[in-house]
Design a protein around this nucleic acid. Structure first.
Length: 418
DNA sequence: TCTGGGGTCCTAGGACCC
DNA sequence: TCTGGGGTCCTAGGACCC
């Protein structure tokens, strides 16, 4: 595929969660459009999930930022409307958008729930000029689904993504290579993809404040300073990037669940129950993906927000809830220092196919465990995650299946490799 | 009760082998 | 018995993304 004349679109939903919630409510009889008042999607403060997940444009005018605490957001705007998130609804909205996009190209990569890359190369004969086609797509999404998107157009994914970040909402922008000096280089350096809150201050200290200044540096100096990361950001600052639009789905490397608890965990028994709860949802997702895991890792965040983790290999890759839980508990007991924990997590990596299960001879009662897991999964899928649970969760105050959205399908998530 | 949850990738250091 | 060096695997932690 000749990459020099590729045409790539990046489609980005404006204030995704908030827009989707607003549309849903309008369609279900609400008279207010959340997008027109100071409002945010945010978690439940009493269970310590109190941060802003998405904000309306009027809320932005109060300087409310994504990720800040609801406490702080309400200080800035006392009559702020706060709506709890409904991830399953957002997933459906995302799917509807992708359904429209597929009419314009078979080559589509879902980068996250609200961002999509589309390869529009060689599509001009069918849909005309890319800018005109992008307007058509954007207007169709607004007319048919009720929410707005920005579309960025360029010759690679990086530039298309940067272009979609320009003026919002409901806009189409181009950022072709010849437009880089005028449109990309004047931007503050922290707006470049992959420059976050740790790297930006380092660059400031060296007098680098714009993308253009970064682009003008000697890449060898950056390599010495920041290793391969230095080369990557220098390439990005110059608009160099050539990864394909991955329409085949990116193989999953790992999966996990973690949860901030409503109260600090201070005893091992409670910690073990939390771990089991997290394992139930994670292992079910693993089985749903038809994978086995070779490595289990547990993570802990103490009340002062210090996070640490401990991982270990399973003797045999498995998808069995009990086997994973046994390992997780062992790892936890080795690592936990006894301090109060605010948050716990489990993550499974080293995934392999569960097709053969050829190593099962070494594990006792494998068939029974697999049959049990399968039966429980079936009941939970049909009747919900609370339809069946272990008796140890009764009166424990701990949810038997923590994290995850059970009805939600797994799809490839974003990665730093575009 | 002021700070979520899902990911990927890279690096450094230690163990171990040849 | 002194001093190497390369390669791979494993683990913990930290960077980034949405």
């Amino acid at each position: 595929m000749p990459k020099s004349n590729r045409i790539i679109f990046h489609i980005d939903v404006n204030s995704a969660y908030l827009s989707w919630e607003a549309v849903y409510r309008l369609q279900h009889g609400s008279s207010v459009d959340l997008r027109t008042i100071p409002s945010v999607i945010g978690g439940d403060v009493t269970s310590r999930h109190g941060i802003v997940l998405a904000k309306s444009i009027p809320a932005k005018k109060y300087k409310i930022q994504t990720g800040e605490t609801l406490y702080s957001a309400r200080m800035k705007c006392p009559n702020l409307v706060v709506i709890p998130p409904r991830y399953y609804l957002y997933m459906q909205c995302s799917n509807e958008m992708v359904r429209i996009l597929r009419e314009y190209s078979p080559s589509i990569q879902r980068y996250s729930i609200d961002e999509v890359f589309m390869d529009f190369s060689n599509m001009e004969p069918h849909f005309g000029d890319p800018v005109k086609a992008a307007h058509e797509i954007k207007d169709r999404i607004r007319a048919e689904l009720g929410f707005t998107v920005n579309i960025g157009i360029s010759t690679n994914k990086l530039l298309a993504k940067m272009a979609s970040e320009f003026e919002k909402p409901d806009k189409v922008h181009t950022l072709f290579p010849e437009e880089i000096p005028a449109k990309l280089w004047p931007l503050p350096v922290e707006e470049l993809f992959m420059i976050g809150r740790a790297t930006a201050p380092k660059l400031y200290k060296r007098g680098i404040f714009t993308v253009g200044q970064l682009a003008a540096l000697d890449p060898n100096v950056l390599r010495q300073w920041l290793k391969s990361y230095g080369i990557m950001i220098w390439n990005f600052a110059n608009g160099y990037e050539d990864s394909p639009v991955r329409d085949d789905g990116i193989p999953m490397k790992g999966l996990g669940n973690s949860n901030t608890l409503a109260f600090d965990v201070e005893d091992a028994q409670t910690a073990h129950r939390v771990l089991l709860s997290l394992t139930e949802t994670t292992a079910m997702r693993l089985r749903d993906a038809k994978k086995c895991a070779g490595v289990v890792s547990v993570s802990m965040t103490d009340k002062d927000f210090h996070t640490y983790s401990h991982q270990g290999k399973l003797d045999v890759p498995t998808d069995c809830t009990d086997a994973i839980y046994q390992k997780a508990r062992e790892l936890f007991d080795e690592a936990w220092q006894g301090e109060p924990l605010r948050r716990m997590g489990i993550r499974l990596t080293q995934l392999c196919s569960n097709d053969f299960f050829q190593l099962s001879f070494f594990v006792k009662n494998t068939e029974k465990h697999r049959a049990l897991d399968a039966a429980v999964d079936k009941i939970r899928l049909k009747y919900g995650s609370r339809a069946i649970f272990r008796s140890s969760f009764l009166y424990s105050g701990i949810s038997p299946c923590m994290g995850g959205v059970l009805e939600e399908e797994d799809y490839p998530m974003m990665s730093s490799i575009l």
